[in-house]
Amino acid sequence: MPKSTRNRGTGRVGRRGRGTALGAVETITRPSQTLPVIIALCIWRWRWELLTLATIAYVTAAHGNQIVGFFTDTVPVWFTVVLIILAAGWLLVDNPARRFARNRVWCVITRHRVRACLTEMRTRNWSGNLPFIIGCFATKTGQVVWLWMRPGLSAEDLDNKSETLASACWARSAVIARHKRNAALVRIDIDRRDPLSKKHIVSPLLNDTSDMPEAAVADDAVLAFITPDPVLDESTRQPPAKSGTSGETRTKTTRTKTTAAVNDSQTVILGANGEDVSDYV
């Protein structure tokens, strides 16, 4: 018998019961960039880390011996210990320097996390380029990230991705908004904290009743001003007087409905013209 031309590997079930599907292939396009462009983008992406390392290297190489000699030969040991404790306490206490350092660290972390999230979500154009991260800035509730959408991308590519971005940035929530004038600019607000959660807000509207006991403030002060006006009875209303040509005042007379009792079980209601309107009432 002739051998079968069917591939034995197609549809074969492995030892663990998995099917080897060979038809599903994921293609990821990588951008074609030159070496100078890649180096420039890496320097821009890691600029704060490179700046910190360059500062530490410069201080260590230029002034390292002087600093070590000052703390070992000039000042006593107790002064060094006190100086380290004061420096650590100053960094732990809430002050402008600590807030600046904390905000910069979170901005660097948020920028890297947003780029990693965009990479994992495959937010790329057909050339394989990601949205360009212009910068990350600190706010009172967290950070804000500005994106420049490359050709082929728009704010619609980030629809329903706010929870994914918030999870990637370790934040409470994320809000994605497009710029009003330029569709290529997209703003991502990363909310990490609520500034009003630990503050007690006192309303100035309660100054008159804040010191009074609760029993004395039984009635709502607002409801006292929004109660409806009393409805006047139609019999007490008087139509406005009209003046005629001769200066005499004429009063408009209104016809009232009259009722006549026929018997104890039925009441006849007569209209203005004397018609029986009992069936319509």
Results as ranks from 00 to 15, higher is better:
225 F>T: 15
194 D>C: 12
165 L>Y: 04
207 N>D: 02
220 D>E: 11
156 E>P: 04
177 A>G: 09
211 D>W: 13
178 R>K: 00
232 L>M: 14
155 A>V: 15
228 P>W: 11
209 T>A: 11
144 V>H: 04
162 S>M: 01
165 L>A: 08
175 V>H: 03
151 P>S: 09
208 D>E: 05
175 V>F: 02
154 S>F: 07
223 L>C: 12
220 D>N: 15
211 D>R: 13
165 L>F: 08
230 P>A: 09
148 W>T: 07
166 A>P: 05
176 I>L: 03
183 A>W: 11
214 E>S: 08
157 D>C: 09
200 H>V: 12
229 D>N: 04
171 A>Q: 01
147 L>E: 13
210 S>E: 08
155 A>F: 12
205 L>C: 03
213 P>L: 00
206 L>V: 11
187 R>W: 14
207 N>I: 01
210 S>T: 04
161 K>E: 09
214 E>M: 09
204 P>F: 00
157 D>W: 07
157 D>E: 06
215 A>M: 04
164 T>H: 13
177 A>D: 10
225 F>Y: 10
201 I>S: 12
204 P>A: 00
140 K>I: 13
191 D>W: 10
231 V>T: 00
160 N>R: 04
140 K>T: 15
185 L>R: 11
213 P>Y: 00
184 A>I: 03
230 P>L: 09
175 V>C: 03
213 P>D: 01
171 A>M: 01
195 P>I: 08
189 D>P: 10
148 W>E: 15
149 M>N: 11
158 L>I: 05
156 E>W: 08
179 H>P: 14
172 R>S: 09
197 S>W: 07
154 S>E: 07
143 Q>F: 05
218 A>M: 13
187 R>P: 14
171 A>R: 02
192 R>T: 11
143 Q>W: 05
175 V>K: 15
182 N>E: 10
168 A>H: 01
140 K>E: 15
171 A>W: 00
199 K>F: 02
212 M>N: 10
230 P>V: 06
232 L>W: 11
190 I>Q: 07
232 L>V: 14
181 R>N: 08
163 E>D: 15
193 R>V: 01
166 A>Q: 01
199 K>M: 04
150 R>L: 00
171 A>E: 02
153 L>M: 03
153 L>Y: 01
193 R>G: 00
220 D>Q: 13
199 K>C: 01
214 E>A: 10
168 A>R: 03
159 D>K: 06
165 L>T: 08
